[in-house]
Design a protein around this nucleic acid. Structure first.
Lengths: 353, 353
DNA sequence: CTGTTAGCGCCTTCAT
DNA sequence: ATGAAGGCGCTAACAG
């Protein structure tokens, strides 16, 4: 029923091995022979059997990209860039030796993260890219570490993108970590320089690296300005979505009506914060300054334009893709820190009076 | 080196066949035996070899979800919902019979779409979900049709989500099409009812079904109101991104300074349109009304809140996932049209004077 | 440069 | 309910 390599070989009057060689292009074959084989392939409309090929070669062309939330452009941008870098080279129509770059949505669930890793391990994936913040639960870290080590041992390239190095797993090809601390610090410094002293902070989920690092940056800046940490009540945690920003901001405003600025865990959360501020009848930035993080495409279109911290998501994703492919040399020590740039815009201004 | 089924069998003192049977759970096995096998699996930390398994069984647990732009929440929401429906059932840690739901980013390129399909075909994917608008180029339609037929023949379930039925390919399990025409029509009717007569339209790429259907709805409403189609110059095409919305709106304003409203191809484009309107020193909605399409999460937070058309993206994605899994019965005729709901908000109002 | 020969690891009849 | 054995389609040594 289905056409096999042997059929092609017969049609082209060569051995199966030769067909395999021209298809994989990793071995010299006479031009005329290759020609004949390719023609047979087209005539028979042959499609390589991936599983058989992977079994025999003990490797596959699958590359997995894990993201926490596929509906969030933060991840979409990185994943898209990585995927382009991995699968986008040719366009030969007849799908040659391309990798199948594929994104897996964990939804932020540690179980699903592990499950996807197992599934990819089962497929003998060529590489795996883990994007975004990691969970800080010790048990999960240990499980991840073990799993990644096993993957690496099996020859799978493991790359971290926007995620700090995993303690205990040196099996990772490279880790591209965003400078979330530095970005968080500069953002708050900006607010302090403007004259703000009562700054609310809408943080992400408590147990994530990204959340912690951004918050640490914020507190470092505060401390440097001599602001003691009675700031605790000025921080509220919640998921990385607009609703959380809305609710948390309402809560902060209730706790501390003298707030003059709100810093959000990311731009999406900041949007929710803006809505809350407005619904309280307050103006941005005259009454309350609001700032985000990430500089997603929509942030510049917010009204007023959102002050935020730019992360080179596209570049980072592309680089992760190259690292996964082995197209680019890993950074020294396998770790690179990617700079975060303050984008001061109209949503922040000096406080009243 | 790597643990195989045989190793597990030896440890559990059973035959490989028995191990296979407990792992696949599709054949009666004595409880005590199963117990012993499962223990051996855990002790040996065995992971099934996907390629070998797929080769022998002639099927795989891969499910592909194709999207046009992974950085666009429109696709992310659908893909996430589908993926949850497909892979999210258990959480057994040890990854049992789960499918590997995986999203592929075509970037809107027809070649990459075809390439991904071939790659998925090569993997003997269990199902494929195609999301979003399709290209209307005849050659590409023919190629897609042929490819999908081949996939279906090989046992792959093919589901269309947010995409109209493919002419010529009845091999598709089901097609969930959004009522883009109806939505577009109602949106423009809303504007007409408000009193607008000079309405600019920022359309998507010319050769896409989504673009055409939304535009047709728009024109139908116009025609019903007796507005003749000297409207041509009031339509500008461009990609589905904010930049396009910005540029096109500037162009429309230049062509026709008496414009009182701008309808955008989607919410992202609408955001760009809003920015352009503002940069011209005009107010929304007092001077110009602006409307979008899709009702993405950020639209309600725009200032003013964006009038748009809501598409049940999450529900559609989830349903597509179930259809792909065979968990839900296909709609009669394999085609379902999904309603689009007008969300009238603050960005549209009666024109001045 | 090309053909031959063994498996890769698992599933699946067929027996038992 | 379990075991034995063949083969899924391809690749990777080896020859030549």
């Amino acid at each position: 029923m289905t056409v096999t390599l042997a059929d092609v070989a017969a049609r082209a009057r060569v051995s199966p091995a030769t067909v395999s060689r021209v298809l994989n292009g990793n071995y010299p074959v006479a031009a005329s022979t290759r020609e004949r084989v390719l023609r047979a392939v087209d005539e028979l409309d042959y499609v390589l059997n991936g599983p058989a090929s992977s079994l025999a070669a003990a490797t596959s062309d699958l590359v997995g990209i894990l993201v926490n939330d596929i509906a969030d452009p933060f991840f979409g941008i990185m994943a898209g860039a990585a995927q382009t870098e991995i699968g986008g080279q040719e366009g030969s129509g007849r799908a040659g030796g391309e990798k199948l770059a594929v994104v897996c949505n964990t939804g932020g669930s540690p179980e699903r993260e592990l499950t996807y890793l197992t599934l990819l391990q089962r497929q003998r994936a060529a590489a795996v890219i883990l994007t975004g913040g990691a969970l800080e639960d010790p048990a999960h870290i240990a499980a991840m570490s073990a799993k990644l080590t096993k993957l690496a041992d099996a020859g799978t390239h493991v790359v971290l993108c926007g995620r700090p190095p995993l303690p205990g797993s040196s099996a990772v090809v490279a880790s591209l970590a965003f400078d979330n601390r530095g970005g968080g610090r500069r953002l708050t410094e900006h607010l302090l320089a403007l004259g703000h002293r009562r700054i609310g902070y809408v943080a992400g989920p408590a147990e994530r690296t990204t959340t912690r690092h951004r918050l640490e940056g914020h507190r470092t800046a505060l401390a440097a300005a001599g602001l003691t940490d009675d700031q605790g009540p000025l921080t509220v945690h919640g998921p990385y979505d607009r609703r959380s920003g809305y609710k948390a901001t309402l809560e902060l405003l209730r706790r501390s009506p003298d707030l003059t600025a709100v810093v959000a865990a990311n731009d999406t959360v900041a949007l929710g914060a803006c809505a809350a501020v407005r619904d309280q009848g307050l103006r941005i930035p005259q009454d309350i300054s609001v700032a985000g993080f990430d500089d997603l495409p929509f942030s510049v279109d917010a009204v007023p334009a959102l002050t935020t911290v730019r992360l080179p998501l596209h570049e980072a994703g592309a680089r992760a893709g190259r690292l996964a492919m082995g197209t680019e040399a890993p950074p020294p020590g396998g770790i690179a820190t990617i700079a975060a740039e303050l984008m001061a815009r109209a949503s922040t201004a000096p406080p009243r009076g």
